[in-house]
């Protein structure tokens, strides 16, 4: 019950700077009781407060994952992007299906880009070898698709995801390198070509 005054301060904040400060204090408490409130803040359309809330959720790590998956907001794409960003950074494989779905087909580009990046850096140590093989196959296939997203920033994020996947999944490395080489030469956006080139550099 030690965090209840901090939760109250978040609920009663009456200005953007006060909300950000209150969320920062709640996040710093690193208490699992703060999780539902921190997730709520993701939907407040306040970037400062959302950054602080994501930070708090990432610090708490895997204990925040079930609630994040349960409370993910189907209607507010801002909140969904922040939640995916938190899941991506925690890297818990229980978020796999949520991240796959978001990267492939969320209508908001900020959600697709957060998920695409996160898919490359899941915490494999939590899975058996069979589970790892299945997950990496799904991720590889989805990220190869996402390389064709109409938005440059989503393709950029897919490259970041593929780069990380290639470092962990030897089986896919040469196919990833081939794809990155194509993107480095042919993508319409200079930033995407450069990021592919960076991913290919030793």
């Amino acid at each position: 019950m030690t965090v209840s005054p901090l939760i109250q301060a978040v609920e009663q904040a009456d200005s953007a700077p006060r909300l950000t400060a209150a969320v920062g204090a709640l996040a710093a408490a690193k208490d699992a009781d703060a999780i539902p409130t921190l997730i709520q803040v993701l939907g407040y359309n306040n970037p400062g407060a959302a950054v602080a809330a994501v930070e708090g959720l990432v610090q708490l790590g895997e204990v925040a994952v079930p609630k994040l998956l349960e409370q993910i907001d189907g209607y507010n794409y801002g909140a969904r992007a922040w939640a995916n960003r938190a899941l991506a950074r925690i890297g818990d494989p229980r978020a796999l299906n949520t991240l796959l779905e978001a990267a492939r087909s969320d209508f908001a580009l900020s959600v697709r880009r957060a998920a695409a990046k996160g898919l490359g850096s899941l915490d494999w140590s939590k899975l058996s070898e069979d589970e790892i093989n299945t997950a990496q196959k799904q991720i590889f296939e989805v990220l190869m698709q996402v390389c064709e997203d109409p938005e440059w920033v989503v393709r950029y994020a897919a490259i970041v995801g593929l780069e990380a996947l290639g470092q962990n999944a030897e089986e896919y490395r040469s196919r990833i390198e081939n794809r990155l080489q194509q993107l480095a030469q042919k993508d319409a956006e200079m930033a995407v070509r450069a990021r592919s080139q960076l991913a290919l550099s030793p």
């Binding site: 580009l109 900020s110 920033v153 200079m190 930033a191 450069a194």
Partner: peptide, 28 residues
């Protein structure tokens, strides 16, 4: 500000940096 806008802004800087680079350079 929003990450989306910051990414667009940094993309502008990146294009400037890439244009200033030697086109024959192998490394970034």
């Amino acid at each position: 500000a929003e990450n989306s806008l910051k990414l667009i802004s940094l993309k502008g800087l990146l294009e400037q940096a890439l244009n200033a680079e030697n086109p024959d350079a192998v490394t970034l």
